[in-house]
Design a protein around this nucleic acid. Structure first.
Lengths: 319, 319
DNA sequence: CTGTTAGCGCTTTCAA
DNA sequence: TTGAAAGCGCTAACAG
């Protein structure tokens, strides 16, 4: 029989006699035959059934939640996930982008590390479906999934204000990150609207890991007029803040709200601004699939909601 | 000029005149040319520069730590990571294995879900480098990376015994898991050697998630003769145990040692049996690469050490 | 329902 | 140093 007939059977195409079909299947099974998806994709015109995901650090629970959501959604569409970590390094990000494109991924999902997205822009222009997650890529017309950073920050500050706080500190990541910008901006705006003078003095940056956050908070607490409440602007900042409070006499009096939920927040009684990272990934994958199917659809900007989950630490009154 | 010359330049092969080389590079740049890794791999004889990783659940921090270690090591060898989640379902695992093989991965790294590894065995026989992580696959001659479950358990029990405990409970995952077997076996052995009668009565299973663990521990604590110490046999069991202790009067008197370290264990003062999951992944990738290079090397069984990290919860004396 | 022919974009001989 | 030809394993288009 011909090659083509076998191909038809193996691809589940119609128009094959049942007898022939069975013959092929038997042969394939007994020979341990496996179709070659690489060759198939090539013949079909280049694109593979792979979707690339370029992320800061797979070991970070936020990114792995994203990856999990992405993978789950892709699976529904018969697509596979190709992961690469940029270590938040823009240069690595660019080279990984190149590698994935050479692998002919059908789409790319990225949490952009740097500010320069010229590489990505070119690919989009060349027709590659690109979805940007967590942080929009400035000046790029790409599908985007972010959370409502401003709304979440606003709600957190309102929560603390409602509990009587005025001296509220903000402990954030690196200032060049978009999420930092959004959150700190909104923090300042909310404080000013509440009539807090000199709001800037309460903002700290550089809490890229727990240790750095801890130091920042220790410093804040040692000042002549320490804050009565702290908004920790990401999960690592929250950990560092908690460490600092533990190590400071009276630290358990200070109110804390953390941005990003985490598994043990419940156990620790930490009030947080929560959102669904797995869902973020799922939505991103959905957009990637949609754009692959229809390159001309209008660009979509998905903003996922956040909510304040009160668990005790954010409801302490000011000392 | 010929196709081949261009190919040589793009692959950095020697024997090209500098002038020609430059001409090709300019052309490639101005045309936005990208080589097609899919076609290249096909022409080169089938195998792609991809390594597959089949894991239980990417969102679980243990697996994502593995993935991170794997990815980092593969990168060193110019390989890319293709991830797939089995949801701990043996059937899904088998079908994913098939998909990855059709994608012509150069090697496969697996945390086997079920007990039946016939599919994998066939692939190994067919020459596919397979590395098994976290749990050995019974009856298979595959490279393996596991931690010293027995040693870790033994050390944890010794730690609790040394602090005067005799009524020590074991809260573990599903009994069919290899890690459960190892840990519970060794737990029983250690208890018996210490002269604890009727050791089996202290063993509980089914703590596959925190909620289940919590219920198990609540039950233990409500018994007429409650344990004075608990060995939580995985990270979710630890969380559930802590929840149960929080919700039980006097629960803060009960000693706890958790298997698996976690970020907030330090903050919570939880004594744990720790090991390096990222390193596990790295070693697995290393083995995968080594076997790809030399299919005939002897099968290697890597056992990574564990260590007890005392942080307070495991040092409480019996009530 | 089945087969033939021509590629997909690259690499690998081997020859010039 | 360069090039021509063959083919990796498959599919798409068209015949039979």
């Amino acid at each position: 029989m011909s090659l083509k007939t076998a191909s038809r059977v193996l691809n589940g195409e119609p128009n094959v006699a049942t007898a022939t079909r069975e013959r092929v299947q038997d042969a394939a099974a007994s020979l341990g035959f496996r179709r070659n998806a690489v060759a198939a994709d090539l013949a079909r015109g280049g694109l593979s059934r792979l979707v690339g995901f370029i992320t800061g650090d797979l070991a970070n629970e936020f990114y792995s939640a994203l990856a999990s959501g992405i993978e789950r959604e892709l699976r529904e569409h018969g697509l596979q996930l190709l992961t690469a970590s940029s270590d938040e390094d823009p240069e690595r990000e660019a080279s990984l982008t190149g590698e994935l494109i050479e692998r002919r991924v059908g789409a790319l999902i990225v949490t952009p590390a740097g500010a320069d997205h010229s590489a990505l822009r070119g690919e989009i222009a060349a027709g590659l479906p690109v979805v940007v997650v967590d942080r929009p890529a400035a000046g790029m017309d790409a599908d985007t999934v972010v959370i409502d950073n401003r709304g979440g920050t606003r709600a957190a500050v309102a929560h603390l204000l409602a509990h009587g706080h005025r001296r509220i500190a903000f402990v954030g990541d690196e200032p060049h990150l978009w999420t930092y910008q959004e959150r700190s901006d909104e923090f300042l705006a909310a404080l000013r609207e509440a009539g807090v003078a000199d709001a800037e003095r309460w903002v700290r940056s550089g809490a890229h890991d727990a240790a750095a956050a801890r130091d920042l908070v220790l410093e804040l607490l040692a000042a002549p007029e320490p804050p009565t409440a702290i908004l920790a602007a990401n999960n690592r900042a929250t950990v560092g803040t908690l460490q600092a409070l533990r190590d400071t006499p009276g630290g358990d009096q200070v109110a804390v709200v953390g941005f990003d939920d985490f598994e043990l927040a419940d156990l620790l009684g930490i009030t947080v601004v929560a959102y669904d990272a797995v869902e973020m990934g799922r939505r991103a994958a959905e957009l990637a699939v949609a754009r692959s199917a229809d390159p001309d659809r209008t660009v979509e900007q998905v903003v996922l909601p956040t909510r304040v989950v009160p668990r005790g630490s954010g409801e302490r009154p000011p000392r």
